[in-house]
Write a protein that binds this DNA or RNA. Structure first.
Lengths: 193, 193
DNA sequence: TCTTAATTAGTACTTGGTACTAAAATGTGG
DNA sequence: CCACATTTTAGTACCAAGTACTAATTAAGA
């Protein structure tokens, strides 16, 4: 016996982390043990079979694609009154935070606010022109950000001023004023294809 | 026969688009035909079997996770002098733009600027506190954004003021002043687990 | 009606496993 | 060194979701 059971199992988890697409056979060869041993190991470690692992990853991917494909807006819009106000919710997950400290990267918070602001504007094209933003306090992993957007000023024909506040448990974490430019003509400047 | 071959195949592709995890059996039931017919259809349409599809999606997911995991910084940093200046490049791809008009979503531009600003700060924790930003002109698909960041003011012990300009072909498209808060202690506030 | 296209049936075989039983090999304590 | 426990192998039956192939049956077009 080369490695002890423990060492082997550690090796296995590591190997799988690096390449989750290993079959039992490959793992057996890797560890120089029989396939049955590997299966016992997987049992003990609670690691599902290759197919289940793939299925899992595929589903995760699918879910993500789904939720991202209407990602014109980041965060789930729960209320929207065009040209007036709107609310969206974004739960901070692993992908949003710095690994180091579990604090959400500012641009995700900004993205939630920005896309809600854009979504509020009832126009063919709506683009952020200016913004003044303040990150009041850090947002942590698994906190639920609720963004409230309100149109402040709609007088100017081509500009809309929108205020966005983001709160976690009713505590303000972000404040922004967005100046959104809007246009009707859909003139797309694309050279290629 | 209910549907013609063509109609059925169209139905199949649609169904799979909605739920790519359908087995041949489920599809057969869905279309009220035998499993063999479904298999012939898949052949003709060049649709691989469920397992292959899952594998594909899983791999895509894995790749994405890999390539996204060092996404602490959005855009490729080509030059960086801590606490002084830095340059990063971001090429606008499909995923960054509005489908409708091929214009980059503002928060990606912001993200490039923001993460470069954060990256400039030589500190355990660096968080954006405030920012004033201006989107000078829209950025289009496949344009290459070059972000230039410069520390303006480092006097204050806990705050750093950074100016970021983003240019496309030397034309200014974005301007921002970031107020970055920095701290040394790595105190992570996580309640759970 | 004849013939071609489409559909169904059925069998053998494949992957990457599970579930289970049983036999070896290896440790370990007394 | 023996006995018992732990660990590792071996081997079988079985499963899902297929492929690959042959052959029969049904529908449809001209």
């Amino acid at each position: 016996m080369r490695l002890s059971k423990k060492e082997r199992q550690k090796k296995l988890t590591q190997a799988l982390e690096e390449d989750p697409f290993l079959t039992d056979e490959q793992m057996a060869r890797l560890c120089q043990v029989s396939i049955q041993t590997i299966r016992l190991d997987r049992m003990e470690l609670g690691i599902p079979e290759l197919r289940e692992r793939m299925k899992h990853m595929a589903e995760k991917n699918f879910d993500r694609v789904r939720s991202l494909s209407p990602k014109e807006i980041i965060g789930e819009v729960v209320d929207l009154q065009l040209d007036h106000s709107g609310i969206s919710i974004l739960e901070i997950t692993e992908e949003h935070v710095f690994e180091r400290n579990g604090i959400a990267r500012g641009h995700y918070i900004f993205a939630q606010a920005n896309s809600l602001a854009i979504g509020l504007v009832d126009s063919e094209i709506a683009l952020t022109a200016n913004a003044q933003i303040r990150f009041v306090r850090p947002v942590y992993l698994s906190e639920k950000c609720v963004a409230y957007a309100k149109v402040l000023d709609n007088e100017n024909s081509s500009r809309t001023k929108i205020e966005v506040k983001i709160k976690v448990n009713n505590e303000l974490v972000f404040h922004g004023i967005f100046d959104v430019y809007r246009a009707l003509e859909t003139r797309v400047a694309k050279e290629e294809s």
